[in-house]
């Protein structure tokens, strides 16, 4: 769709990703309307995004899509961190939410022409049979067993069905590797901020990272260039976990490789570090994804895996001192506000 103005619906506005995507959309003059859905208030400052409170699985969505003549849906509301809520709540949001979203988008007379889904490389699973690099069409080595994997598998199934049933809609699905950055919190970023970084004794698998800014840039890029299809989004390079810890200036504290769950459970209870099964498995075998498909479309990453981890730890250090990882952010925005609204500014 090359239409000059877009009418965009963002799911999960209250989450980190929804908020960041809405901010990026606000900066784009081609975007006419931004409607954000969530169960909770947005946590970032937004100027022209309209927030609609909905229940966790968007039962009234079809009406919103019709009433606001939405042509673009950005589906960011997929929970891939199993530590933040129960498996049941996660299933409700991820699977049922996506199902309803696509039901609404494929309603008769629907105006939706573009859909971007923010998935995760967790969908590839993690096992000893994995290839070093997963391509977009590599099947997981094993059937999905764990919560997030199974959620994403179902979600991607709905996305595929929708794309098949609606060939006139541009559907793209982005699978993001481990995200790090100034603001995002995941089990991995929490682990890397501990005095010593948990690892598994005798294992030193290789990890791949993507910077949170590249995540937003990738979503905007896919939207602007009307890409369809599945794309891995991950910085170049694979780093051994021990090296990741060293870049962060930390030592590793090896957990026993056998009966790891017996140790990880109490550690989570004590509030030291919550490493769910998905992440323990990652500490055992790691995961790499091939990012060439997106690069071939012209996307350029600002951070490779090393730079992403460096940027992450630098903002952690900064936050430790001044309380925020992005110091100039608020200030710039105030200036922007001033230019935009103050009567003192003389406009031509």
């Amino acid at each position: 769709m090359s239409g000059s103005s877009r009418r965009v619906l963002v799911t999960g506005l209250g989450t980190f990703w929804g908020g960041r995507v809405a901010q990026a959309l606000e900066a784009d003059p081609d975007v006419e309307v931004i409607v954000g859905l969530d169960t909770t208030e947005p946590t970032v400052e937004l100027e022209r995004t309209e927030y609609v409170r909905v229940d966790a699985n968007y039962s009234i969505l079809a009406r919103i899509v019709r009433a606001a003549q939405i042509d673009t849906i950005i589906h960011t509301f997929l929970i891939v961190d199993p530590t933040v809520m129960s498996a049941r709540a996660m299933h409700e949001i991820n699977v049922i939410g996506t199902m309803n979203l696509f039901a609404a988008a494929s309603a008769p007379a629907s105006t939706v022409r573009n859909v971007v889904v923010k998935s995760s490389t967790i969908v590839y699973g993690c096992s000893s049979q994995d290839p070093v690099w997963f391509r977009e069409d590599t099947p997981p080595s094993r059937p999905a067993r764990r919560g997030v994997e199974r959620n994403l598998e179902a979600v991607e199934g709905y996305v595929r069905d929708f794309a098949q049933d609606n060939p006139h809609v541009n559907v793209s699905m982005l699978r993001f590797a481990n995200v790090v950055g100034a603001e995002i919190e995941t089990p991995l970023t929490k682990a890397l901020q501990l005095p010593v970084v948990p690892s598994l004794a005798g294992f030193d698998p290789r990890f791949q990272f993507v910077h949170e800014d590249d995540v937003i840039r990738a979503i905007m890029f896919v939207l602007e260039s009307n890409l369809a299809g599945v794309y891995n989004v991950a910085g170049d390079g694979l780093l051994p976990w021990s090296e990741v810890a060293r870049i962060c200036g930390k030592r590793t504290a090896p957990l026993p490789p056998v009966g790891t769950g017996l140790i990880a459970g109490p550690l989570a209870r004590l509030g030291v570090v919550d490493l769910p099964e998905e992440y323990l498995q990652l500490l055992r075998f790691g995961r790499g994804v091939d990012n060439t498909r997106l690069k071939e479309t012209g996307f350029r990453y600002e951070y490779n895996s090393v730079e992403a981890v460096q940027a992450f730890i630098e903002s952690v250090r900064l936050r430790r001192t001044i309380g925020t990882g992005q110091p100039s952010y608020r200030y710039e925005r105030d200036v922007e506000q001033f230019f935009r609204h103050s009567p003192a500014v003389i406009r031509d």
Binding site: G237, P240, I247, V306
Partner: peptide, 17 residues
């Protein structure tokens, strides 16, 4: 291909390990 030589690396472990 592969982003083999990345500046800032602290080890020489390649993408294959």
């Amino acid at each position: 291909e592969g982003g083999e030589h990345l500046p800032g690396r602290l080890s020489d472990v390649d993408e294959w390990g």
